[in-house]
């Protein structure tokens, strides 16, 4: 199995608080690796370090063998890291197409082009249509984000990440705030995507996690206390006490 992402010995402290405590994990091609843990377990800090917003105190992150630990957010995105956010970062006044197009144009080369008009760029248009089709948002492509449902916004976020043609997806609670239908749609979407693009999934919805993930890592107090296939995690006593039992 090809390893896409490898995190080794990652550590980050805020004062006396060990938010990330010697975390190591991998993501292989074709799989969904879910990261779960109670609130305050350090999931956001870990994601922040993988995406590049937070600089780790120690440890390395490699993407397809290349060290990306020192790269900026933008450089990591260029290197093939696609991600979505827990709280939407889409531009509300702009259409789904315009939001996705930014990612597509970043993928298609330099943004320091001042003359050619994006609206007439057929290549960009095709690339945007393709990923909007992937997330079944083509019919609402020209609707402003502000007028879209919460579930639709989530799918546009995923489309933005897909437009980068990423080597992996880092999804931060993509089901958060979705109703039952929305969660089912998103689960189906991620199941379709995983063979194309491996996914590191941070999610609170346990049904979705156990339905999707090939491997689950449990984060408690900044450290990975268990890692393995869903069946093993489900029965792991430490996990049950630390996390699932409280659910």
């Amino acid at each position: 199995m090809t390893e896409v992402l490898r995190i080794t010995g990652l550590a980050k402290s805020f004062g006396a608080l060990k938010a990330t405590d010697d975390v190591s994990l991998t993501l292989n091609a074709g799989e969904i690796h879910a990261l779960i843990g109670p609130n305050g377990a350090g999931k956001s800090t870990l994601i922040g370090q993988i995406a590049g917003w937070i600089v780790p105190d120690a440890g390395t992150i490699t993407l397809e063998g290349a060290d990306i630990t020192g790269l900026s957010v933008a450089a990591r995105a260029k290197a093939g890291l696609g991600r979505t956010f827990q709280v939407s970062t889409l531009a509300m006044d702009r259409t789904a197409r315009q939001n996705v197009r930014i990612a597509a144009q970043a993928r298609a080369g330099s943004s320091f082009r001042f003359w050619g008009q994006v609206a007439q760029d057929q290549g960009l248009r095709d690339a945007v249509d393709q990923v909007l089709g992937d997330v079944q948002m083509l019919d609402q492509a020209d609707t402003p984000i502000a007028e879209l449902s919460h579930g639709a916004r989530r799918r546009v976020e995923v489309a933005c990440a897909l437009a980068l043609e990423p080597k992996l997806l880092l999804l931060d609670e993509p089901m958060a705030g979705l109703g039952q239908d929305g969660t089912q749609e998103m689960t189906a979407l991620l199941a379709r995507l995983k063979s194309r693009i491996p996914i590191l999934l941070v999610e609170h919805d346990m049904d979705a996690v156990f339905a999707l993930a090939g491997r689950i890592s449990v984060l408690v107090n900044g450290a990975v206390i268990a890692s393995g296939p869903p069946d093993v995690i489900r029965t792991d006593p430490a996990v049950r006490t630390a996390y699932l039992g409280e659910d």
Binding site: A51, S72, V73, A74, A75, R76, A77, K78, R83, F85, T89, L90, A91, M92, D93, R94, Q98, N99, R101, I102, A103, Q105, A106, R107, S111, V118, C160, A161, A163, L164
Partner: peptide, 19 residues
């Protein structure tokens, strides 16, 4: 388009790979 996004959602722009 990039300038517009730098204004509206800096995070979105950076996440797209544009500084």
């Amino acid at each position: 388009a990039a300038l517009d996004m730098a204004h509206l959602s800096e995070t979105r722009l950076a996440t797209a790979g544009i500084a």
